[in-house]
Design a protein around this nucleic acid. Sequence first.
DNA 1: ATCGTTTTCTGGAACGCTCCATTTGTTCCC
DNA 2: GGGAACAAATGGAGCGTTCCAGAAAACGAT
Lengths: 335, 335
Amino acid sequence: MTQETGGRRPNIYDVASEAGVSKSLVSLVLRGAHGVSPARRAAVEEAIKRLNYRPNRAAATLAGNRSRTIGVVLDDYRNLWFVGLLAGLHEQLAPLGFRVAVADPLFNAHLDRTPVDGLMSLRVDGIVIATEPSEEMFAALDVPAVVAGNRDIRVPGADIVTNDDMVGGRLATEHLIGMGHRDIGHVTGGGGAARLRAAAYEASMLENGLRPHITRGQGFTMESDGYQAALKLLDQNPSLTAIFAANDTMALGAAGAARDRGLRIPEDLSLIGYDNSPLASANLLRLTTVDGRNGEVGAKAAQALLDRMKDPHVPVRTMLVEPELVVRASTAAPA
Amino acid sequence: MTQETGGRRPNIYDVASEAGVSKSLVSLVLRGAHGVSPARRAAVEEAIKRLNYRPNRAAATLAGNRSRTIGVVLDDYRNLWFVGLLAGLHEQLAPLGFRVAVADPLFNAHLDRTPVDGLMSLRVDGIVIATEPSEEMFAALDVPAVVAGNRDIRVPGADIVTNDDMVGGRLATEHLIGMGHRDIGHVTGGGGAARLRAAAYEASMLENGLRPHITRGQGFTMESDGYQAALKLLDQNPSLTAIFAANDTMALGAAGAARDRGLRIPEDLSLIGYDNSPLASANLLRLTTVDGRNGEVGAKAAQALLDRMKDPHVPVRTMLVEPELVVRASTAAPA
DNA sequence: ATCGTTTTCTGGAACGCTCCATTTGTTCCC
DNA sequence: GGGAACAAATGGAGCGTTCCAGAAAACGAT
């Protein structure tokens, strides 16, 4: 398969001599530069194919002092909101020649102190923090950064892009109120986004002269958190006709709690989630939810990064994406 | 924060002079080598901290001609079986100083022809293919590789590690038969794993003198595929008392279909899934399922890779992990 | 043809590490 | 106190690119 290069993997010199040009010209072709004659370009591409040459990104990163890669810090693969975010990032960045590297949530403390350290060692050109940022993370930050999905914790010098959880929380609560519900509970969790959604819920309730009922689960991402919290909520407030869960996963838990208390959705209890995850569209739930438009968040995060790469001194911005209500079958007027 | 290195990021030379040692000694400390005196080691670590030095992995990869990284090719973040796989890989590899890099399923064809190309450019030391391998993928393979979760397509030179889908399919089917079910349907999907599970279902049914009923969804990963297929199955076979779905996501779809046909689970219809995903343990489903023990698959994949890195000529192996039945509340004896 | 101009192409010098052969230092024994 | 044996530390070469300044080629206008 591979031509003979003495057992070695071929490098640009091999390609260059195969194509009868200089190594620099090969480099130009690899980077898709302008000002290369079509004939030479074709010759180089031919040679690349013949030798089964594959560029060495380590060398490119070292020599160019940049990796053309954007790092993304995730916290949990099971919380699927990041999928839309990555798609949005990709869509904006790939055409410009940037790759996206995900810093493994399981990163090992033995090798790097934080996922950010790992990405910095890779010499990424920018970082998207899609988790609750911690102090020790931003000590290491040395490149343009944006925090996505969280406006609670400010990272010095980092832009913030997120869906507007306050608006989303109001959207959800007012949807229920608009349908005629008066006794509406809220199941919340840990973390900044949950806090804002809860605050919006509370504000909406009070503005409408209604009494808020909030129960907090242990975590934010687990179905069991939603289940436990919803059980408590239902048992303490038997007159409840609707629940707003801080995310779809917790809504799934709440749906389990409702079933266990003999409540049908939406006949006996309306249920609304947040995130518009794949779960929400499942036929078993047909969950009304709030779509945080994570693709848009990703696209805006990419834009913020690109702007800051061009000029590191642009003022720090907070960009809010307007969430949308997605009405499905889990909400209805109270009996 | 950073000490003065003339605006540059500090490198090993800066650390070396700060600590009063040679660059080589710094390198040794970085790699955690033996034979460095505690005093010098401490001095170097001090200097690293003072300068806020972060090693350049591109340079390390280039110089060492290896990245100490294992690449993993995924196909869809929404199909959560990979989470256990990654955990298993991590657990084995991190203590040995290997990182795990996930090749983005959204990889852009503009930058790399396949995800494998991208990983090869990164000079990974091994590759785990956790998706259906394609011809053009293994053209690029040049390092130890293992295919995880699929024994259908053979990649030349690659080991295979997967849960034993045949055993799992039998486990599920015989669990239902053992409970007294006679009319059992199967909802299957695309892909090699699904094919094996279906074959095992069919074999078990026939061995027990029962007539198999298989319906195939469009895809394998979508809830809607399971929903559609289960609807068809139920409508064509009204006497059905149990459904075995090829994975938990499709089982969720099947649960939706059952609900829409007025069937209670497990009173009117028993339902069993496959994967033991987070979904299965949700209180709304409490789904009986087959656990493919993906953590174990990941651990074995790591071992296969390490063995082949040591000696590229060890014969190609197929390693099967024994799956386990996880009984929850979605299965019961027929009425 | 001749001379600018512009376009295309080239060689050399980094980039920041690892690896290896060698040097320097230390310990222990007779 | 001298040397063997071992442990610890070092300097140089090389990894495969990019970038840059400048050379060569192509093109136009006179």
